[in-house]
C-alpha cells in the first residue's frame, strides 16, 4: 500500500467502482433485455430493471419450439463451441509445450532456425493466411468438421515462447540430476517438467479457451451447415437486417448463455492460479 489515508482509500474504491461499472453494465443490460418481451425491447427506452419474462425467454431459447437459425438448438451450438474451444486450448498447449521442450532441452541441427521459424509465425495470424488455409481445408475435405474448426488455429508461437521462457528458468542442475537418476527424455517430461508447469498450463488454458470460444472469422468461413455453427456465428445469424424481424429477446438470452462457459472456466481455474501462486514452487 502506497498510502493509507481515508481519502486515498475512497479514491481507490471510486476508481475501481467506475471500472466495474464500465465493464459490467453492458452485460447487466444484456441480462435485463433477456428478461423482457420482444415488444418491450423494441419500444425504447429499455427499462433498467429485469422484467418478468425470464422463464419464458430462457425456456423458449433452450427447449426450442421456435424455429431458429435453421432449426439448430442452443445446446448444439454450445456443444460445437465447447468442442472447438477445448480443442484449440488443449491442442495449442500440447503442441507448444512439446515444441518448447524440444527447443530448450535438445541440441539438434538447425535448432535456432526452427526457433526463428516458430517465432516468425507470430507475424502470420489467422487473418493473414486465411485464404491458403481455407484452400487447404477444402482440399482435405475438412469443411464443416470439428477438425477443420480446430486444427488451423492450433499452432501457437505465443504459447511456445511462454513455455520456452519458463523452461529456461529451470535450473540446469535439476535437469542433470534427473539424467543421473535415470530419467530419459519422456520420463523427465512427464515426471518433472509437466508437474512444474502446472500453473503455467492452467493460466494458458484459460486464455486459450476464451480465445477459442470467441473465434469468429474462421468458424464463419469453414462452416456452411447450420448444425456446425458455433454460438458466436449463430448469434450473428440471428440478427437479421430488418430490426423488426429479429427476435431480440432470444438474441439476448443466447448472448447470456454464450458468456456463461468462459465465466465458469475463469472462476474454476482461478483457484488453481491462487494455489499455484501461494505455493510458488521451484
Amino acid at each position: 500500500m502506497i498510502g493509507s489515508s481515508r481519502f486515498r482509500t475512497y479514491v481507490a474504491h471510486a476508481v475501481l467502482l467506475v471500472g466495474i461499472l464500465i465493464v459490467a453494465f453492458p452485460i447487466y443490460y444484456t441480462f435485463v433485455a433477456s428478461t423482457h418481451t420482444l415488444q418491450t425491447i423494441l419500444r425504447p427506452p429499455l427499462p433498467l430493471l429485469p422484467g418478468g419474462e425470464f422463464w419464458n425467454n430462457y425456456s423458449e431459447a433452450l427447449l426450442g419450439g421456435v424455429n431458429r437459425i435453421g432449426g439448430v438448438g442452443v445446446d448444439v451450438l454450445l456443444f460445437n463451441t465447447l468442442v472447438m474451444a477445448l480443442g484449440i486450448a488443449i491442442g495449442k498447449i500440447c503442441i507448444s509445450i512439446l515444441s518448447a521442450y524440444a527447443i530448450v532441452f535438445f541440441r539438434f541441427p538447425l535448432r535456432m532456425v526452427f526457433f526463428w521459424l516458430i517465432f516468425i509465425t507470430l507475424m502470420l495470424p489467422v487473418e493473414v493466411r486465411i485464404l491458403p488455409t481455407y484452400k487447404v481445408m477444402v482440399d482435405l475435405n475438412l469443411i464443416d468438421t470439428y477438425a477443420g474448426l480446430i486444427v488451423p488455429l492450433i499452432a501457437s508461437a505465443t504459447a511456445t515462447l511462454l513455455f520456452r521462457q519458463f523452461f529456461m528458468t529451470i535450473p540446469g542442475e535439476l535437469v542433470e540430476a534427473a539424467r543421473v537418476d535415470g530419467a530419459g527424455p519422456w520420463r523427465f517430461f512427464f515426471d518433472i517438467l509437466l508437474p512444474l508447469s502446472r500453473t503455467n498450463i492452467a493460466a494458458l488454458f484459460v486464455i486459450l479457451f476464451i480465445y477459442g470460444w470467441t473465434q469468429y472469422l474462421w468458424p464463419l468461413l469453414v462452416t456452411n451447415h447450420n448444425d456446425m455453427n458455433t454460438i458466436v456465428i449463430a448469434l450473428r445469424k440471428m440478427v437479421s437486417f430488418a430490426d423488426a424481424d429479429t427476435q431480440w429477446h432470444l438474441v439476448m438470452v443466447t448472448a447470456m448463455l454464450a458468456i456463461v462457459p468462459p465465466i465458469l472456466v475463469v472462476v474454476g481455474m482461478q483457484r488453481w492460479f491462487v494455489r499455484g501462486l501461494v505455493e510458488s514452487e521451484k
Binding site: 535450473p171 542442475e173 535439476l174 542433470e176 540430476a177 534427473a178 543421473v180 518433472i192 508437474p195 512444474l196 514452487e281 521451484k282
Partner: peptide
C-alpha cells in the same frame, strides 16, 4: 552407475 550431489542440491521441488 554414479550418483551426484549438486551444489544447489537440485531436489525435485514437486
Amino acid at each position: 552407475d554414479i550418483a551426484m550431489v549438486f551444489q544447489n542440491y537440485a531436489l525435485y521441488p514437486h
